[in-house]
Write a protein that binds this DNA or RNA. Structure first.
Lengths: 185, 185
DNA sequence: ACCTGAACACCGTTCAAGT
DNA sequence: ACCTGAACACCGTTCAAGT
């Protein structure tokens, strides 16, 4: 069944309905209730798989290079994941699952992504490439920047204002590293 | 009718349905079709009002002070708007309206927010408080950061990892200004 | 110019029942 | 342990019709 949803998600955008999943799995409309408490639980399960895939993509980008270039590589892997898996990304961060208080599993995988970023930043602090400060706060800030870029790009809220997504990503990483203030102010 | 939706949005979260709006307006289920082409058009109209309110809130925060403190004030006004108008904010940036290709009005108001941020940054460049660079790219990056913070906070994806939202906002603005790299590297 | 009522296809969800 | 079928309340949307 999980596999059935995967296909659904890659096919349509947010026609991720219990009945459609059941149809796709060749089973009756009410069968999914044997596996998921309700629609939200289904969506949460799909989102959880998305977060796991995202973390794997980021990990893959890191091993290929380390240091600041590694961090930039992770950032680009994040952007690419979002662009290549638009529907999944929207489910993962959409309003549907905004309230995670009753979804501990999802909270856990989300925290995994954050911990991964925090570990990378702590490592860069060790090599002196990133300054002092709480690595968790820095990680959340970095994640926020990535997620914000992705949202704006996916919403088309930025296109025709900033035609070049690559240039935008470069500028964003530059600002994250060196800031907008003039050097030495 | 517009007023009817306002109330609805402030009341429930995303039970923003045509039929519910009609009920609230004390009119038949199909009456809204005289005013909106379909449900999406209704949601877009509500979102547009949200963007206008957001821009007004940011403008109000700017006039009270200028310079870097002004920029920080605008950032805090943005965060406060999102926290105080969670449902509206989710509608404005939700997946429902992700494709704006057939919603020119919404695209316009979104661009208005961006232009406002870009103008503020250009002004700071004039006073030497912000370094050289394309103010549009900087504006999009700034907006992305704000939106990302809001999303993560609203999703509760961050709470219990970073208990203090205020500290997070301060750290984010610090990074936006001075970066994560050690000074003078 | 604005509204109504009936109708259709689609949901999520429940419940009694089957193997 | 897993599935089915009928049923209920809710949608978005269309269409013929009213004032």
């Amino acid at each position: 069944l999980e596999a059935g949803e995967e296909i659904l998600r890659s096919e349509g955008s947010e026609a991720l309905t219990l009945r459609a999943v059941a149809r796709r799995a060749g089973v009756s409309q009410t069968a999914p209730y044997r596996h998921f408490a309700d629609r939200r639980a289904l969506v949460a399960a799909v989102a959880e798989r998305g977060f796991e895939r995202l973390r794997r993509a980021m990990e893959g980008a890191l091993t290929s290079s380390d240091g600041r270039a590694g961090l930039r590589g992770v950032a680009f892997a994040y952007l690419r994941f979002a662009i290549d898996n638009t529907a999944a990304y929207r489910v993962m961060f959409g309003p549907e699952l905004a309230d995670r208080s009753d979804l501990p599993g999802l909270r856990e995988t989300g925290r995994g992504v954050l911990a991964f970023v925090a570990a990378g930043i702590a490592r860069l602090q060790g090599t002196g490439m990133v300054g002092d400060g709480d690595p968790k706060l820095m990680a959340v800030t970095t994640w926020a920047m990535l997620h914000g870029l992705v949202s704006l790009l996916l919403d088309g809220q930025v296109e025709s204002v900033v035609p070049d997504a690559e240039a935008l990503a470069m500028e964003a990483t530059r600002i994250m590293m060196f800031g907008m203030a003039p050097r030495g102010s």
